[in-house]
Every structure is written in structure tokens, then in C-alpha cells.
Amino acid sequence: MEIFLIDKIVLIVAVFGITLLFALYSTYAERKVAAFIQDRLGPNRAGIFGILQPLADGVKFFLKEEFIPAHADKALFILGPSVSMTTALMTSAVIPWGNSLELFDRVISLQITDLNIGILYVFAVVSIGVYGIMIGGWASNNKFSLLGALRASSQMISYEIAMGLSIIALVMTTGTLSLGEIVQQQNGSIFGISGASWNIIYQPLGFLIFMICAFAECNRTPFDLPESENELVGGYHTEYSSMKLGFFLFAEYTNMFISSAIMSSLYFGGYNFPFMDQLGLSHNLVTILGTTFLFAKIVMFIFLFMWVRWTLPRFRYDQLMRMGWKMLIPLALINIIITGLLIVVLK
């Protein structure tokens, strides 16, 4: 029992650290990607290639004046960013970061906990995340913040439906809600290549819907209406300063990392990679390689997030709602029907 606890604590700390590190360097990557797409060089003064820029930003955030507006609700004002950050970090508990390691005569799973309702847990936590933004926007007692919070909540509620519906089709094909099992199933071979039967092959439309919704859930362009700096000043975080603002911004990048991990796990095979069982490597080595592949997939998704952000302009609010309710939800329903029909016909 104690050994089990130690395993888990080590794993939790590692995942926590890696998540934060990824979030930290996502800010740097974002600025670099933005710069490169706009024919600039981006931050390159702090350290070689500006690699220390996130640290400088972090230090700056901590040194900034901690300001709470006079008319703000103090308790809620502090609660907002805390909820955002906590929920952003909580989701990583059910993501399988790798298969399992055989160390010290024990088998250590690289998933912190394999809940049998893993996907539902993710959804539950992500929908709590919107409370952080809502509470923050409301507590600021500022019109722009409130409008930003309003947009955030309506946007998230709208896109969660389509997201859930796209997942239902996935659950129909996999027959389980556990993330660990879903990833395990994608280990099967296709055309004789082991570890390549990824769900994207069976659920391309579902993946597309899920990805669009993930963009919306993370408040990323083209769905960054809650922030929309050129019409709402800063949206829900207008009144925030110092590390509280940092938490809000950080939560966005953490969410981006987590949704990339979830997309990789659900649709792109998680830690599975082609030919994984045909290489004849030891189990531990395959696991480590698998984890590396998972992170490569995550990095690619994060790049996609940024690439899209610096390509597309923002939706108008009515376009956003039309897209969510009149395009994505019917599409997701059609996807469920097609999936159901195919399952009945093929099995």
C-alpha cells in the first residue's frame, strides 16, 4: 500500500511538473510561432533563442502589483483564477501517459488513475473550468469582464454539447468510457502494422467535431470571444493583474496541453505508435518510446492550436452560436447515426 502511494505520488508530481513546464513553454512557443508566421523572429534576447523568456515573464508576473478593484467581490475575485487553474490541472489525472513500466519487480502504470468513467470525469472537470472564468468576470464588477464571462459561459455550454455528442459516437465504437482502455484498444493492428488502429480511422468526422469543440473549450482563436482584446479590452480578465492574471493565462495554456493530450489519447492512439510490437524491444523501452510518441503528438496538436490561432480571425458572436447549434450539433448527431448503422451492419 505504501509503495503504491509512493508510486502514485511520484507520478502525480511528475505529471504536475510536466504539465506546468509544457504550459510555461507553450507561452514561449506561442510567441515564437506567432512571430514566425508574421515574418518576425519573436523573443530572442533572454538566453539563447530567448529560451529563458518564460522565466522572465513568470518573474515579472510575480513582481507586478497585486491589485484588487475597490468594487470587486474580494473572495470571488481570488476564487476565479484559482478555480481556472485547479480544474485545468485536474484533468491530467486520468490521461494514460504511457503503458506501464516494470521496475523493482513491480508493474507501474503510467496513468495516475484509470477511472472507469474517465471521459465523464474529464467532461465534468472541464465544465467546472468555465466557473473560474464566470466567477472572475462577475467578481470584477466591470462591464467588459461581465460580457467576457457571459460569452465564455454561453460558448462553453454550446460547444460542450457537440463535444459530448462526438464522444458518444466514439464510445459506441470502443464500448468503454475508460481512457486507459480506449488507448489500449488502439494497440490493435491494421494492415499488419501493430499499434496503428487509431480511432481517427473509424471516427474522422467525430474527431473533426471534437477538435473544433476543443478549440472552443480552450477559448482559442477563432473562438476567443471571451477575451477578444479589441472589443472587450481583455474580456473576463480585464481587471486582473499580477499572478492572478498569470493564472488565467496559464490555465488557458494548460487547457491547451490537456486537450491536446486528450485528442491524442482518444483519436490518435495515445502512447501507441506504428510497429510498436513488431520491433522486438523490451517492454520498458516500448513504454518509454510510446510516452515519447504521445508527447510528440501533443506537441503537434499544440502547434496546430497556435497555427490556427495565427491564421484565422475571430468569429462574430452570432456566427459562433450558429456554428455550434446549427452545424456542429446536427453533424455530431448524424455522426452518431452513421456510426450506429455501421456497427449494426458490420457486426
Binding site: 514566425f36 508566421i37 515574418d39 490556427v308 491564421t311
Partner: peptide, 21 residues
């Protein structure tokens, strides 16, 4: 159209940068 736009931005991503340090 979105893919077309993304192709344009990725082209710029790999372009030589005219920045003078």
C-alpha cells in the same frame, strides 16, 4: 478555405525573416 489560409501562414512560417538584429 481555412486549409488554404493555413497553407499561406505555414509558408510564412518557414520564410527567411527580414529582421535586422
Amino acid at each position: 478555405a481555412i486549409l488554404g489560409g493555413m497553407m499561406i501562414t505555414i509558408k510564412h512560417f518557414f520564410k527567411r525573416k527580414p529582421t535586422i538584429q
